[in-house]
Design a protein around this nucleic acid. Structure first.
Length: 474
RNA sequence: GGUCCCUUCGUCUAGUGGCCUAGGACGUCGCCCUUUCACGGCGAAAACACGGGUUCGAGUCCCGUAGGGAUCACCA
């Protein structure tokens, strides 16, 4: 049955055994991009046929992850387990049509045969009962239904990423369609669901490439059209090894908690193993214009946090202080171990344009923003502490005197006051600014010193300076 | 081990037989800017895994070798 229209239908089909990891997120992104680019549908299917390992928490985490990433799906997520009857029905059809057969071999018999065949350097085809007549001894015995794979010829998959891949039918095993308890296997379920859901393009990790040849046989036996396949390479850790929990196989929520923007992570994920020329910063709108499966590389790519940081910084720079504030507030509260007050928030809001210039992530941005909270006495970095020599403390004392005289605590006035101190000591302005900056920031980065003082305000500025001039007495 | 896939700077990549003296980005290093922390700007070092072919000409095509990955369940 040919598809009614040329509308693109893609799907993301995670098994709910854990969070949405970074590789799954990228697979979802590619599916989403292809569907949205062509005005098609992006469907969600939860592959929960393994009831023992599937959890509701995992489903929630995956949905939350997709939502955070901004990947919206069409319709309600399909639960694969709810469709078991339909899967079984197809298995029966396959059986009736002579494309499948009953296998009475016990797990032990299969294991023994597998070992024996493998010792010869061949793959076990699971075909113990393929051409074996069912005698009366099979009466009442448990059986599975296996696919009767072709043995002659080749199966060719024309993959959008991998190209034309050919495999000899002789190596395709008679996979189990229906288990002894009557439940369908993954191999059957995906094919039936993808067909029934009208999926036109299956984009998934290339760990499924080998399965595809077998699935194609099921499509053929049922007389169904195959969808287009695109097997995208897996993401590797920085060390080139398969992604493990140690290096980067984190849930997307972990990236959120590390302070990354969903737009930036999306951009990074897109460029990891995919390109269309030299463009690096590709916001979603642009991605929708450019995306094509052609640009996907075949080789696995390594995950690189430095580059992610860099992309993230570029997105951060274009955020408005008002948009950023609600997001960094929890980070700030956590570091402060109390909620920020309104006065502090107002100061941070004023400082944000400058802070955003040099931040990489929300977490270091909030770390820098703490500068404008009332956290006296400040913890000094090693570098800052070094600035506060006995001589420099004298300068700070003089700076306090000059600043106290100021009626207007503006940036220019404050700088002028510091210039007076420098003049009195016959020093360059910078020599005075350095220790004053150290006392005021504790070593944290911030732009212009005058701006810093102005935002900090009279009380906080003088307080921080006094802390360093005569520690402990203020 | 069988089958399938992959291999360009440290990393992500551009490159579809002459445009390649191999381009961009991240990272690294250097310089400049800032009488202040940073940011930024400019510049440098840095790769076609190896060996054979094919061709007037190969990073680009073919074969082999090495290395890496995926997969071989009544898991998904």
């Amino acid at each position: 049955m040919p598809h009614a229209s040329d509308t693109i239908v893609t799907r993301f089909a995670p098994s709910p055994t854990g969070f949405l990891h970074i590789g799954g997120a990228r697979t979802a992104l590619f599916n989403w991009l292809l569907a949205r680019k062509h005005g098609g549908q992006f469907l969600l299917r939860i592959e929960d046929t393994d009831k023992a390992r599937s959890t509701q928490e995992a489903i929630d985490a995956i949905l939350e992850g997709l939502t955070w990433l901004g990947l919206d799906w069409d319709g309600d997520p399909v639960s694969q387990s709810a469709r078991a009857d339909r899967h079984a029905e197809v298995a029966e059809q396959l059986l009736a049509g002579g494309h499948a057969y009953k296998c009475f071999a016990t797990p032990e018999e299969n294991a023994a045969a597998r070992e024996a065949v493998r010792a010869e350097g061949r793959a076990f085809l699971g075909d113990l009962w393929r051409d074996r007549p069912h005698g009366p001894e099979t009466e009442g015995k448990p059986f599975v239904i296996r696919m009767k794979m072709p043995r002659e010829g080749n199966t060719v998959v024309d993959d959008a990423v991998q190209g034309q891949v050919t495999v000899a039918n002789g190596v395709l095993d008679d996979l189990v369609l229906l288990r002894a308890d009557g439940s369908p296997t993954y191999m059957l379920s995906v094919v039936v669901d993808d067909h029934d859901m009208g999926v036109t393009d299956v984009i998934r990790g290339d760990d499924h490439l080998n399965n595809t040849f077998k699935q194609v046989q099921i499509y053929r036996a049922m007389g169904w059209d195959c969808p287009r396949f695109a097997h995208i390479p897996l993401i590797h850790g920085a060390d080139g090894k398969k992604l493990s929990k140690r290096h980067g196989a984190l849930g997307v929520e972990a990236y959120r908690d590390m302070g990354y923007l969903p737009e930036a992570l999306r951009n990074y994920l897109l460029r990891l193993g995919w390109s269309a020329g030299d463009e690096e910063v590709i916001p979603t709108k642009r991605a929708l214009e450019m995306f094509s499966l052609d640009g996907v590389n075949k080789g696995a790519a390594r995950f690189d946090f430095d580059k992610l940081d860099s992309i993230n910084a570029q997105y951060l720079r274009h955020m408005s202080p008002e948009a950023v504030m609600p997001t960094i507030e929890p980070f700030i509260n956590a570091q402060l171990d109390r909620p920020v007050d309104e006065d502090e928030k107002a100061r941070i809001l004023r400082a944000l344009p400058s802070l955003l210039e040099r931040a990489k992530r929300y977490d270091d941005l909030s770390d820098a923003a703490i500068l404008f909270c009332n956290t006296r006495p400040l913890n000094l970095s090693e570098k800052a502490a070094k600035q506060l020599t006995a001589d420099n403390r004298v300068l700070i004392g003089d700076a306090i005197k000059e600043l106290e005289k100021l009626a207007d605590f503006g940036a220019d006035q404050c700088k002028a006051a510091l210039a007076l101190v420098a003049e009195a000591h016959d020093l360059r302005l910078g020599k005075v600014m350095q220790p004053v900056r150290a006392a005021l920031t504790g070593g944290k980065p911030f732009g212009d010193l005058g701006e810093l003082v102005e935002i900090l305000g009279r009380a906080e500025t003088l307080g921080r300076l006094r802390d360093q001039y005569s520690p402990g007495t203020d």
